[in-house]
């Protein structure tokens, strides 16, 4: 055998960052800071000033105040927590359920696959938001119940996604080669298949996150999410819509934030999804 001419490793080319992706990342980062530290940074969000009552935006109150004289600007920052953390919980919870059930169904097949698929089909046939409203209504509302119901109802799409991604990988030669080495099925599943499925899962979780922001805000708007008085974008939108002529920003700012958060997360998720599927193809 003649020694081979050794080529240097191909330089790893980074894809050029689009300005849109940078903006989306910045928005999501800002929202994350507000969600984690907002109530701690602005402890004055709950201060009422009944003498002032509702007021238009001013130098003292950038977005004006609500009926109780609370500062809207501070409230929306404080309100990021319930909207975003709850939505993040929904997305992560659904991802976990989807990964476990999707991996088992996709890799083992047979009866496990049949049962998981029927379960996912059943849940998919239910209108998620309506069921959550009914469940929350019967259970007397409450934030935890709403988040739990959304996890259960978001997961079937994740189960299907993971299952099909696993099926795609399962017959690749590298998976079969791992099987013929005599490795256990669990090892093959967790060490070889799962890491190659993960990128798609992560991207999808961002999309679920965006959906959950909207869903949770809707529930709060309907009075089924956070308790009254709590800072929450959906709740603020619902309570302040009567102030549209006195201080439009009291309702419009939280509404706008719901839209901005959902759009930024969606675009970021889409971009990640494309980047990952692109990589898989080349």
């Amino acid at each position: 055998m003649t020694p081979e001419a050794v080529a240097p490793p191909a330089p790893h080319r980074r894809r050029s960052r689009s300005p849109l992706a940078v903006v989306c990342t910045a928005v999501v980062a800002l929202l994350a800071v507000a969600a984690v530290a907002g109530q701690w940074l602005l402890p004055g969000w709950a201060d009422q000033d009944l003498a002032t009552g509702v007021s238009m935006p001013s130098a003292a109150h950038w977005f004006g105040t609500d009926e109780l004289g609370r500062d809207i600007a501070q409230m929306v920052v404080a309100g990021a927590r319930s909207t975003l953390l709850g939505a993040a919980l929904v997305a992560v919870g659904s991802m976990l359920v989807g990964n476990v059930l999707g991996l088992i169904a996709g890799y083992h097949g047979g009866l496990a696959d049949l049962l998981v698929r029927r379960w996912a089909d059943l849940l998919l046939a239910l209108p998620a938001l309506l069921v959550t409203i009914v469940v929350a209504g019967i259970g007397g509302g409450g934030y935890a119940l709403a988040v739990g119901a959304l996890v259960v109802l978001t997961s079937p799409a994740d189960i299907r996604l993971v299952r099909s991604a696993v099926l795609e990988q399962r017959h690749r030669s590298y998976v079969e080669a791992a099987q013929t080495l005599g490795l256990s099925r669990t090892t093959v599943m967790l060490r070889h298949i799962w890491p190659n499925v993960l990128p798609v899962v992560v991207a999808n979780t961002l999309l679920n996150f965006a959906g959950a922001v909207v869903a949770l805000s809707s529930l709060s708007f309907l009075g089924l999410g956070v308790p009254p008085g709590a800072p929450d974008w959906g709740r603020m939108l619902s309570e302040n819509r009567t102030l549209l002529y006195d201080n439009p920003s009291a309702a419009l700012v939280p509404a706008l934030l719901i839209i901005v958060a959902a759009v930024a997360l969606n675009l970021l998720g889409d971009r990640l999804f494309e980047a990952f599927t692109d990589r898989g193809r080349s």
Binding site: R172, S173, Y174, A177, A178, T180, G182
Partner: peptide, 20 residues
Amino acid sequence: RRALAERAQIVFQDPYASLN
């Protein structure tokens, strides 16, 4: 499968799919 692994091994066709 363990016993089989030490008796037979395989090299597949597609070089782009056969490694993780």
